[in-house]
């Protein structure tokens, strides 16, 4: 799918996605900066392009002002420092990036399997939900009617 983000913006979004959810060996889970997941993020982010472009430009400005280099070239400590500032000063954009990251991350096959989920959409198979113990209702059935009379 064609995408309006520049290569530099794509690279920055991938770095940010990895900062939101890095890989975990313990949970056998990939990073949200994984190419396949980033591709999904870029697709979902398209409708927010104008908003995100402004936010990403701000991030670049912060990196150059504070460290004199592009955001993508910062080391991890410098990157974390910039992102902490960005999250404080631009919480709306930072939350949007986190939301886009998570909504794409948690539909990836590898992630769903790591959570014990079947990697499929809900439809058409659906799910099974147990009826539960309806005898719990017996206590309520014993109550007298308690709605308010109007006459």
């Amino acid at each position: 799918m064609p995408n309006s983000f520049t290569d530099a913006e794509k690279r920055t979004l991938a770095i940010l996605a990895d900062m939101v959810i890095p890989a975990s060996a313990e949970y056998h889970a990939p990073s949200a900066g994984d190419d396949a997941i980033v591709s999904e993020i870029l697709s979902d982010a398209e409708r927010h392009h104008a908003h995100l472009s402004i936010g990403l430009a701000t991030l670049e400005t912060l990196a150059r002002e504070r460290h004199g280099i592009d955001f993508a070239d910062l080391d991890s400590a410098q990157g974390a420092d910039i992102v902490d500032t960005f999250r404080e000063t631009h919480p709306g954009t930072a939350n949007l990036i986190a939301n886009l990251t998570t909504q794409c991350y948690y539909r990836d096959d590898r992630v769903m399997i790591s959570l014990g989920m079947e990697p499929r959409p809900p439809h058409p198979l659906g799910f099974t939900v147990e009826q539960g113990d309806w005898s719990l209702l017996d206590q309520v059935r014993e109550r007298d009617k308690f709605y308010r009379k109007t006459e």
Partner: peptide, 28 residues
């Protein structure tokens, strides 16, 4: 008991499931 009696045709209730049971016990 929160409502007047009605004769409406109702299909079987939605399953309680684990979450419904958990909170029903809390209400009880």
């Amino acid at each position: 008991p929160a409502y007047p009696h009605d004769n409406a045709h109702k299909l079987p209730p939605l399953p309680l499931g684990k979450s419904g049971q958990l909170l029903a016990k809390g209400f009880n």
